[in-house]
Design a protein around this nucleic acid. Sequence first.
RNA 1: GCCGUUGUAGCUUAGUGGUAAAGCACCAUAUUGGUAAUAUGGAGAGCGUGAGUCCGAUCCUCACCAACGGCUCCA
Length: 581
Amino acid sequence: MQTNNHLEHKRHTLAHLLASAVLKLYPDAKNTIGPAIDNGFYYDFEFSTPITETSLKDIQREMRKSLSKWEKFSHKEVSEKEAKEYFKGNQYKLELIDEIVSKGEKITLYTCADFTDLCRGGHLEEPTKEITADSFKLSRLAGAYWRGDEKNKMLTRIYGLAFNTKEELEAYEKMMAEAEKRDHRKLGKELKLFTVSELIGAGLPLMQPKGMVIRKEIEDYLWELHKNKGYSRVWTPHIAKEALYVTSGHAAKFGDELFRVQGKEDKFIMKPMNCPHHMQIFADNQFSYRDMPVRYFEPATVYRDEKSGQLGGLTRVRAITQDDGHLFCRIEQIEQEVSTIVSIIKKFYTTMGMMEGYWVSLSVRGDDKSKYLGTDEAWNIAENSLEKAAKVNELNYKRVEGEAAFYGPKLDFMFKDAIGRQWQLATIQSDFNLPERFDLSFINEKSEKERPVVIHRAISGSLERFMGVMIEHFAGHFPLWLSPVQVKILPISDDEIENAKEFGKLLEESNIRFEIVEEAESLGKKIKDAKIAKIPYLAVIGKKEVEENTVTLEGRAGTLGAMTRNRAIELLSEEIRSRKI
RNA sequence: GCCGUUGUAGCUUAGUGGUAAAGCACCAUAUUGGUAAUAUGGAGAGCGUGAGUCCGAUCCUCACCAACGGCUCCA
């Protein structure tokens, strides 16, 4: 039986094989580091002249050729001097050797066939026997900083895919192809959900009418889940004076990610967070303990000047709309409030069909308590409250030490989409810092000022990113309640158009979104177009339907046959109301 | 930001140192069709932007912008 360990060794072995092939074809290249990763392996090189994608084929061919000679690995321990002599001229390896020496570890060299590398081991003993040439392939070329530090030189990284068998490799590639088909950037364009404009700029996607329908439905649903839980809607402007962020600490924390706006007299900042604004709304009131908790909700767009190279689609943008909310409460109220938020999150993600395989990180303090703000007592209460809320709500949570923010412990929710990819979406964070910085207080039973705790919470995370995730999760086949066009009415001939419009009127009265095809095309063409647009229901109206005052409904699973128009509307309304997937 | 690749009609793509081709979509006409493409015709880009080389550039050079794959970052 082959173990995971075996596969990791195989990938590691292939990294060596890759380095050997590269050095054979490009003798003046310098090999650096090459580990196994979770779908294969990579190796970083410094090339004297840049190589291109086409070189990958040659390298791959060379790897497969050499594989037959890679019969057995051997290794030996060497002295620092020997190792440095062997790798002279390769400053990267020399740096690694110095590091090994300074840690007091042994230096080992691993050799297979005519290739030797500095390595601590973990290979297949007999590569020729244990690796088939069709179970791996080189996949792509990328840049990577030496040791992952952007101050260092950029090296060339060659990635390879490797699995136990050819079949597993093919299954992986098939999964990737499926992911590509679902890519929200591709579907967003095809289904006219959103667009980007070079004139407007990178990371600033625009919602098309159809995309906006989805976004609005999600936003409305989120508010629906909050409005009877004591939340109030607030609104805050998109810019604020720099002083606000100096007080909040965001100016120092965000640094060059802030967009700055020069006014006639004052310097402004495009808000990177909503928290400080909400703090000011709270501070405008003289609250009593009887008013606690105070809960604000605002789907609000914030602006961050992300580095250009990391922008993409809807998942990494410069204008981010958070479904943001802040609660101000007493420390002993944290548990109850978190519990309510957790129930909202559970409801929301159950509706989206993402509660399978989720997990929650309960991020608590690490050992070095000095890094965190707030008293020991407060931290203990907050951590225990979060954990209790997680328990009461039967969350699948893991306590992760040292993952808390400096200002308080948090719950981060990870959900899996339809093809098993994990997304960090919802978050609940307690905060001892901002109330302190803004000197917030309410009056307690003893007529004294008491400092509230702030809870930051986001259910979807960001509407843009969440929409991207939803497009990929549903592969564009949105549930009825989210579909931009819920019903497409297909009159069979021009004679039925008037009648189709009458049916449209009925749909409109029931708040069902529809379109009528008026083009003089064949029924086959009309159906094809509607299916390509991934519209959930087709309503066919021909002579027969007009005569009998019926409509023939066809869902994604197949036809539902002819039915009265009221029945059709009932059926659709019920499916919309239930937010069925 | 950095490394690499890319940028031709709304979309998907072809092509060339002598001012660009196709399919889908769009428009028109005919067809009035019962479950995944009816036919014919038409209009539409000057080849991401700017500069340079050249008698002449969409094609070569440089800069910039943008997208993609990574690195890094991610309250």
